[in-house]
Nucleic acid binder design. Structure first.
Lengths: 209, 209
DNA sequence: ACTTTTATTGTCCAGTTGGATAACAGTGGC
DNA sequence: GCCACTGTTATCCAACTGGACAATAAAAGT
């Protein structure tokens, strides 16, 4: 009677449903029954795929970020160095950052989440380092220490995202202005050059969620 | 038989206990029974002071930040402009930022928390603006738009705090290096001047908790 | 001394939680 | 066609939750 899905399909379905719920209710607020209801199955089934609730949320975060970073990387490679840098630094959709902010808050209490978070943060730094090096190699910008610059600019982007998404103190335009302005100053770019290179609202992030 | 405390004393006790627990278990993870146990009373008593759990955590956050900002303001006034700026921007203790990061993640779901968070974030910006203006008035630094500079530097400090406290990717020294370095560049200060002006580890924040 | 107030307790409740477990039902190997 | 496998369901459970409530005892007012 019941349509039966393959293991991989179902697992993927559960992970995506979990992530959708985490974005609105937070890691701590998502229950197995929530996820089961979102998928349309019995809550016991979740346990068939994930050993514990902590495993589930950590896997959901891990899968989602892995997928997103791969998609972002591919998207950025097709752009000019300056446009790619601007695209990476500009504001990302709300549900994206809501999950990251929740992860920051939960990581100290959930080792599996902490591991995933640490790895993906370093991935993000790596991507930014590469972008900076591309701009420097193109002779447009200067950077004595791309790793240090990436670390600082990642901090700016995260802090601005908090002001924008968590507190709604600034809008998306001001968020971009601050982050891109900081990058221009830090990398010796002409003021406004990054803002102008900013590609069309490539809000492709997490489109697959 | 039982020693009976005044309303204000008890309320304060509850608020501080709540905050201590929030720092380790997060806003969503603190239960009325946890708080009651920490204070050493029955959980019903908490309800006598706070109408609901949400009221409790919002009041705890609000009270704590109000107290801390007042203490910080007093402490900063006694310092030279440069030292005050460095002191404000340098890393703050873990339990302090753990609460803020949790507040960022919970605010979108808890209106009372969102209100308190919004107000206190603006307070923090205001403090930094004043500090910047003091340094500018002293002829040490330049700032075309203190408000914009404060907003950007607050973002850096928050983002660095995440990397330091939530992810443990950087240590306290590197955290200070990044934030103070960013401020030096932004405000046209000589490189290293803020780091040198950095007062002795004035880790007085939240000492009263 | 008495009454009023209120800080504090102990207990109850209905709802929700994560997890365990046994039965059931498609699916693929042989 | 049979069987092992595993995706799936339906319950059960002990623990915990926020909140409600009446009873108690200490303080304050008079």
């Amino acid at each position: 009677m019941a349509e039966r899905k393959t293991s991989d399909e179902r697992r993927d379905e559960i992970v995506r449903a979990t992530l959708r719920l985490v974005a609105t209710k937070g890691f701590a607020g998502v229950t197995l029954r929530d996820v089961a209801a979102e998928v349309g199955v019995v809550h016991g089934l979740i346990r068939h795929y994930f050993a514990s609730r902590d495993d589930l949320v950590a896997a959901a975060f891990d899968d989602a970020v892995t997928r997103e970073l791969a998609s972002d990387r591919a998207q950025l490679e097709g752009l000019e160095p300056l446009a790619a840098l601007a695209g990476w630094l500009s504001a990302t959709p709300e549900h994206h950052y809501r999950v990251w902010i929740d992860a920051w808050s939960e990581a100290p209490r959930t080792p599996a989440l902490a591991t995933a978070l640490d790895r993906h943060h370093r991935d993000c730094e790596r991507i930014l380092i590469d972008l900076i090096e591309r701009v420097v190699d193109a002779g447009i910008a200067t950077s004595a220490d791309p790793a240090a610059d990436a670390r600082m600019l990642t901090a700016v982007a995260d802090g601005v995202a908090v002001q924008h998404h968590a507190m709604d103190i600034i809008g998306v335009d001001e968020a971009d202005t601050i982050v891109l302005g900081a990058a221009e100053q830090r990398l010796g770019l002409a003021p406004g050059s990054l803002a102008r290179a900013h590609p069309a609202p490539a809000r492709g992030h997490w489109a697959a969620v």
